[in-house]
Design a protein around this nucleic acid. Structure first.
Length: 286
DNA sequence: ACGGATCCCTGCGGGC
DNA sequence: TGCCCGCAGGGATCCG
């Protein structure tokens, strides 16, 4: 479920809790949640135990906690993952799949619950390659990265024949964008999701990326997008950006620009939302 | 290179 | 009430 802003909210919540903490306990409650730890659940537990944690980092939707041994605890929230900070011995949250016990030199003991309803998310310990977990090596920089080069991304975008939404969702081109923020950025840029990326002018491409950046920053400022209790921060609280959505989930509601009802269309086994007037189907596209 | 389908899962809300 | 269906914010992989 979570996209870049939601993952960043989780990362920010984790920083003070885990930076400098030592892992004092690890319990895998559902082995499926550590399937990406190739050495198995027992190794996951043994490997983490006693490790000191450093400042959590993120690229796109990948989140990780660097350890004291050139590896990192890698966390991907998938569609329904949550990282929750709890008192030690606190009752398990629903769908808790992994529980960590940490000892922090300043804050004392703390439990970390990894809860995940659908188990598309995962935890694993992975070697860091160039500062990034090896299984995220193919992920492109995200729009919040200091080294993000918008012009370079636009240049690559304009070489793609695929529809612009498919390009935005391709994590090897630019990372962190999911279905919500793709629809929001396209609405802001007044682009139909099937517009071939190669048809964008350089200026239009830059504008689109600026809209991506803008919507991500605003969402982050609101604590992310929550539709229900599914996406929450490390303290179990929802974000407020769902109030500001203009396209995603707005089927039948008037477009904020022109009043035409927003439509929802099936696309690539998911949904796309757009204003049929502001975001016209491009010529020659069925 | 790209679109599309499939799989990994659980749970919800709507329609009948 | 109960059952079936569609749907859900991700992504790896395979096929054509």
């Amino acid at each position: 479920m979570p996209e870049l802003p939601e993952v960043e909210v989780v990362r920010l919540g984790l920083v003070p809790a885990v930076d400098g903490a030592t892992v004092a306990g690890v319990e895998v409650l559902d082995v499926r949640s550590v399937a990406r730890h190739l050495e198995g659940p027992r190794d996951f537990e043994a490997t983490l135990l006693g490790r000191r944690m450093r400042t959590p980092a993120r690229r796109g939707k990948f989140l990780w906690v660097p350890l004291d041994d050139e590896r990192a605890l890698s966390i991907h929230l998938g569609m329904s993952g949550q990282v929750l900070l709890r008192e030690p011995g606190a009752p398990l949250d629903r769908h808790t799949r992994v529980r960590l016990l940490l000892e922090h030199p300043l804050h004392g003991s703390l439990a970390v619950h990894f809860a995940d309803q659908r188990i598309f998310g995962s935890m694993s310990v992975r070697p860091l390659v160039g500062g990034v977990p090896d299984h995220a090596a193919h992920i492109a920089l995200d729009p919040l990265d200091a080294a993000f080069d918008a012009d370079a991304v636009v240049a690559r975008l304009r070489r793609r024949r695929q529809g612009v939404k498919a390009a935005l969702l391709d994590q090897t081109l630019v990372s962190g964008i999911g279905n919500i923020y793709a629809d929001e950025a396209l609405w802001r840029a007044r682009l139909h999701f099937l517009t071939p990326a190669e048809r964008l002018t350089r200026a239009r491409g830059r504008l689109l990326l600026a809209e991506v950046q803008g919507v991500i920053e605003r969402a982050l400022g609101e604590g992310g997008t929550s539709f229900d209790a599914q996406y929450v921060n490390v303290n179990g609280q929802s974000g407020y950006f769902s109030r500001s959505l203009q396209a995603y989930g707005q089927e039948g509601r008037p477009c904020a620009r022109c009043g035409t009802p927003i439509v929802r269309e099936a696309w690539a086994n998911r949904s796309s939302h757009r204003c049929p007037r502001c975001q016209r189907r491009p010529r020659g596209i069925a």
